[in-house]
Design a protein around this nucleic acid. Sequence first.
DNA 1: AGTCCACAGGAAGGGCAGGCGA
DNA 2: TCGCCTGCCCTTCCTGTGGACT
Length: 405
Amino acid sequence: MTSSDKIQDMLSKYMEQKSIFVNKDALTISFKPDDLPHREEQIGQVIDVLAPALRGDRPSSLFLYGKSGTGKSVVSQYVARELEKASKKNSNDLKIIYINCKMRRVADTEYRLLAELSRQLGKDVPETGLPTNVVYKTFFETLDEENRLVLLILDEIDTLVKKIGDGILYSLIRVNEELEQSKLSIVGISNDLSFSDSLDARVKSSLSEEELIFPPYNAIQLKDILKDRSEVAFTIGAVDDSVVSKCAALAAQEHGDARKALDLLRVSGEIADRLNDMKVTEKHVDLAEDKIDVDRVIEVIKTQPKQSQAVLWSIIKLVEDDDMNVIETGDIFDMYSSVCKNSGLGCLTQRRVSDLIAELDSFGIINAKVVSKGRYGRTREVKLAISDQALRKVKEMFTNSFYFE
DNA sequence: AGTCCACAGGAAGGGCAGGCGA
DNA sequence: TCGCCTGCCCTTCCTGTGGACT
């Protein structure tokens, strides 16, 4: 039997296997449900603010706050879709642009955001090369040529402002004064409740004419959501009530995050599927919880540049060293220098390594706390923030890599 | 009260790659 | 092809800092 035959054999066995999924998409965040349980009130409020768009009036700018997985994005997109539908019926044209500012290479610089906005309006802009003021001009002109109301939804707007400041928002707000034929309205979405405090007063007052706070879901509400979705996603009887309850409870512990609840249920199903089980059990949920955590860590680390990986590897080596109780920036830099020397990697300065440590902290891979030790200086105390299981996988990944051993 | 440590972290700018228009 | 512009990664230089020590 050739290896191709073997693979074909495996694939045909896979095709013969019965799946407990009917429509797995229903458990992903890209799924657009017909109903959004427990968000009726918020939907009504968003509609109240945005409905003037249907009469061609510019709606007040709107700000949605709430932790991750509380339904901000899904509600705003849901209302946007409905508005678009209604505007088509009324032959009152309305253009909606949705941008997730957390997406890499979409909104991490002023240039890219403006280029992306122009692109969504149908005007192609090169990825780099043009002066920013030219991209500005292109966007304004394209926007004005639209000759209609444009509703711009900026999801995770706090990451945008962290990266490039609030100047761009000021320009976007002011754009209405320069437009002759079109109108622009902004909906901002943020996970960070204190976000608006960091804004310039003028931006703050114009951007948050209307504000809405999305409360977290509780376990009972999460259970309702999961139940609805699992009925679409799974074959009848594949998921017990207890499994849904467990996923809901675990996600409720994590500030009522519906995304986490859906992930848990989906991965539990995938695990059951792979084990050829025709029913999802609580055991699968436990396995799913571990898997999600490990996958997240590995994914983050894999996408880091070599230098950042070398810093993390240095930290892991120090943690493994029994003599080290507390790991500090200086220790990490020394270890990092020797890792670089052994691996032939170019050695960065301590200043840069300090930034890489801060980055690893922001990814949740390590915990870095700035402490002062009196006359022995100021430093960061660093601990690993990943589970033993994830650590094992990470070590495996590093020792198998070309660079580190 | 003053000193001093070991950094944190801000600011400025260099060098590079990718891309544009002339 | 050249000059210019951008983002990105990095270095260099610098000021700031909390609290143990003197």
